[in-house]
Design a protein around this nucleic acid. Structure first.
Length: 832
DNA sequence: AGGGTAATGCCA
DNA sequence: GGCATTACCCTC
């Protein structure tokens, strides 16, 4: 058995003792050095190399019910670790979710002759700790001991250190046992009859004579529950609160007995959409599903990219493909950008397929719910799995189809270690299992479209909306004209002040008014939350900044707070300038909150609904808000990117982009791609029903290519121009990039380490002779985050293999190059 | 002599 | 990664 036991990136080999049965994916307790550790079985073999034979020890125990993965998923985890240069233990966590993880419970014991052993000790703290432990009966957990020592004013880390001293001295021993996992199968106690019916009937009569109403009622209920069952009931009835005493009394009389029944928690039990038959497919949809469907049964791991304009009916294609996979006994994995879309898509899947066939995984589930969904997948009951990027690792057996909706979405790449991209993992998994991989988007990522052109994916185009509905016309409003000083002067009453800068121009304002008159709905989009981007002192020019990050803080008017959007810093907004004391501290720039206020001022009767991270903190808030808007309980939906993604509201006939420029001004090679995607996606929310839609985009950069192309729904035009750009500037897909970021509280440590790494990489490029270039080191665009200074450098190569060769060659040196933390992001989505 | 501390190396 | 082992210095 090979066990990845320690925090080391190296598996260790153990023997399997008689009486223990193990399979790959089992969790085990194993001796490791002087302690016990939990490990996962990643391989079982009959042989082992002779040079380690003498050290091999047996595993201590198998941890029940923790079996998490199989050989195929281990292969996937290894591959992910290799591709992203991270530890295997980190990728094992992806296939053995934390909630399932077996946990160790450690108990501290005072040895018998501890007083003797501490006789010579001068450390009062050690004596105190030992005495406290003795007071707890000589046996306790570390946390209980810490609590017991709280009166002495000793902090938790200090107690841990003292305990460690005591262990070293031999006065305290530690025993590690298998603890309970965070979530378990939920067991419900139910009551069932265990006496003959005749006896029970007799008993009921006797009780009724004696006025034992509770007990007789309970027995009657049990009797009724048996009516339909010919034999003895296998399940009983739940015990109502207040009936426990009666139940207990009946149990003591031997009439009833308790049964423990495992049950499923259902995250969506309060919402069961009505069942819905598959509609007739349009010709375009039919051709797409037939082309892909043929490969599902062939299991030839073919990959497809569906480029379908917004409203072209991609979701119906997914549903049809999933039902094709189910029909031939295969399972399907459906990957979606984030929780936001889960509810809407889940409704569709639940309406189409049996509830028990569909499982959902996402971060808003409770531990217990996630555990149950996971088990339903593992057991093979649920054969359709819907979830965000992490769902690509779910233990689906007999996989026939992987679907990735909104393929271009940035959330498919994880931005912490392991920095995997779900698209790459899905492709790998599809190749390993033979499953068909189908991606879909109205705005495919430049990389994927390029790959499709190169023949790696088969491209399927859906250039028309269903029912030949038109794509909404997009009108670009030039804010330079709209808000020019001259224009504002002209409107101003003679002698009066210039009117305040407005949120919407005349064109957007009148369009909104029209919708309100016609009881149609409007979506207003602005890619920034809060009220104002920043506060600025009109006298000294001071702008309040975050003390931990190199950014200005955002003003939130409703709570009168300044908030940093990169860390948790927040403070009350000052009334006067902190630098010069002036009272002329004014908000500048726009946020969703300000848009909401402007709507309230200009359209007092309009019912508005704001959706951004500030309003969506509560669990379920997102789904609630969307259902409210769908019901028509609000006229205007104001939101950040969250409203751009895949929403389908037939009554929305106007989409207003308050300011398209926020997405353009980001110093990143993907900025224009992201801006184009955002504009196109948000525009696609309009006119999805019978009534035609309209889009108004306000911008200070009307001639910008992302805005121009989005306004004519011209994906191909955008793609051709962008791909030329990328080629010229040597950006992906023409090169592969690794972004190495170093961060430390002290700038000199960060600099020292990045300089050292630069040297290591220069040597590595020379020694491996791999065709690659390095640029930097330079300060990151966000030069300080969460109180840490950040420096980075870029490694660029035409071939990914060259990049990997250099990085692998220098990994040990990079990892041991100083105290500042280092992260390596290969194929980064952003380089801020 | 006992103990605190920082560097070093191993765990199967 | 955690822990034991080691070497070194400190204090009583």
């Amino acid at each position: 058995v090979q066990v990845d036991a320690a925090g080391l990136n190296q598996p260790f080999t153990y023997s399997i003792p008689d009486g223990i049965k193990l399979t790959v994916g089992d969790a085990v307790l194993a001796p490791f050095g002087s302690r016990s550790e939990v490990g996962y079985v990643i391989k079982i073999s009959r042989e082992c190399s002779p040079d380690i034979l003498h050290k091999i020890k047996p595993v201590t125990a198998r941890i029940a019910n923790a079996a998490a993965f199989d050989e195929e998923l281990v292969e996937l985890a290894k591959w992910v670790a290799g591709e992203n240069l991270c530890d295997l233990k980190d990728t094992i966590k992806l296939i053995a979710p934390e909630i399932m993880a077996a946990r160790l419970q450690s108990t501290l014991f005072l040895v018998e002759n501890w007083e003797e052993m501490l006789a010579a000790t001068r450390s009062q703290a050690q004596r105190d700790a030992a005495a406290a432990l003795a007071g707890l009966g000589g046996k306790s957990s570390l946390s209980a001991l810490t609590k017991a020592m709280a009166p002495t004013g000793m902090a938790a880390p200090k107690v841990a250190a003292i305990v460690s001293d005591l262990k070293r001295k031999g006065a305290v021993a530690e025993e590690r046992t298998i603890g309970t996992p965070k979530a378990k199968t939920k067991i419900v106690r139910v009551l069932t009859l265990c006496a003959d019916v005749e006896v029970v009937v007799e008993e009921i009569e006797r009780m009724e004579r004696r006025n034992a109403a509770r007990q007789s009622a309970l027995l009657r209920a049990l009797l009724n529950s048996m009516d339909n069952a010919s034999a003895a009931p296998t399940v009983g009835i739940a015990i109502a609160p207040g009936a426990h005493a009666a139940a207990q009394a009946l149990a003591e009389k031997g009439l009833v007995t308790y049964l423990e029944v495992p049950t499923q928690r259902n995250p969506y039990r309060f919402y069961a959409p009505p069942k819905d038959a598959a509609p007739a497919l349009t010709d375009a949809q039919f051709h797409a599903t037939r082309a892909i469907g043929a490969h599902i049964s062939a299991q030839d791991a073919k990959a497809f990219l569906i480029h379908g304009v917004t409203g072209s009916g991609k979701t119906e294609i997914y549903l049809d493909l999933v039902s094709r996979a189910l029909a031939i006994g295969k399972s399907a994995l459906v990957l979606i950008p984030e929780i936001g879309l889960t509810a809407q898509l889940l409704d569709l899947f639940k309406a189409r397929f049996d509830d028990e066939r569909v499982a959902v995984l996402h971060s808003a589930l409770s531990f217990g719910e996630r555990h149950d969904e996971w088990r339903r997948i593992k057991s093979g009951t649920a054969r359709v799995v819907l979830g965000p990027r992490s769902a690509v690792f779910s233990p689906v057996d007999n996989l026939g189809l992987i679907i990735m909706d909104e393929e271009h979405d940035g959330s498919f790449k994880q931005d912490t270690n392991p920095r995997y991209h779900a698209r790459d993992v899905a492709r790998k998994r599809s190749l390993m299992s033979g499953a068909i991989f189908t991606m879909g988007s109205a705005t495919p990522s430049v990389e994927s479209f390029y790959a499709a052109e190169a023949g790696l994916y088969e491209l399927i185009s859906l250039p028309e909306r269903i029912d030949n509905r038109p794509l909404p016309p997009v009108e670009i409003v030039d804010l330079r004209e709209e808000f020019s000083l001259a224009a504002r002067r002209k409107e101003a009453p003679p002698g009066g002040e210039t009117p305040p800068r407005s949120v919407f121009g005349k064109r957007l304002a009148s369009a909104i008014a029209e919708r309100l008159d016609r009881s149609e709905q409007t979506i207003l989009f602005l890619n920034r939350r809060g009220f104002a981007t920043f506060l600025l002192c009109r006298d000294c020019g001071h702008t309040p900044h975050c003390p931990n990050c190199s950014v200005s803080v955002t003003y939130h008017h409703a709570i009168r707070m300044l908030q940093c959007h990169h860390c948790d810093f927040h403070r009350r907004a000052p009334d006067t300038c902190p630098a010069c004391g002036s009272a002329r501290l004014r908000p500048f720039g726009l946020g969703t909150e300000k848009v909401e206020e402007a709507v309230a001022l200009n359209f007092p009767t309009a019912r508005t609904l704001r959706m951004d991270r500030d309003t969506l903190n509560r669990k379920g808030a997102h789904a609630d808000a969307l259902r409210l808007f769908r019901r028509g309980d609000a006229d205007i939906l104001i939101g950040t990117q969250i409203v751009a993604k895949g929403l389908d509201f037939p009554n929305v006939t106007l989409v207003g982009v308050i300011n398209a420029d926020t997405a353009l001004n980001i110093p990143d090679f993907r900025a224009s791609e992201r801006a184009f995607q955002l504009m196109t996606q948000v525009a696609g929310r309009a006119g999805r029903g019978k009534r035609p839609g309209e889009v108004i985009v306000q911008t200070f950069n009307p001639e910008h290519q992302s805005i121009q192309r989005a306004s004519t729904h011209d994906y191909l035009g955008f793609y051709r121009a962008e791909i030329e750009n990328r080629k010229e500037l040597r950006y992906p897909p023409f090169t592969h990039i690794a972004n190495l970021v170093v961060a430390d509280e002290e700038e000199r440590h960060a600099r020292a380490r990045i300089d050292h790494i630069a040297q290591v990489l220069r040597n590595s490029i020379r020694e491996t002779n791999a065709p690659a270039q390095m640029s930097g080191p330079a300060s990151c665009p966000l030069s300080r985050l969460k109180n840490r200074y950040r420096w980075h450098l870029l490694l660029r190569a035409e071939k990914r293999s060259a990049l990997m060769k250099i990085l692998e060659h220098s990994l040990d040196q990079v990892n041991s190059s100083g105290r500042a933390s280092v992260s390596i992001d290969i194929d980064p989505m952003t380089m801020l």
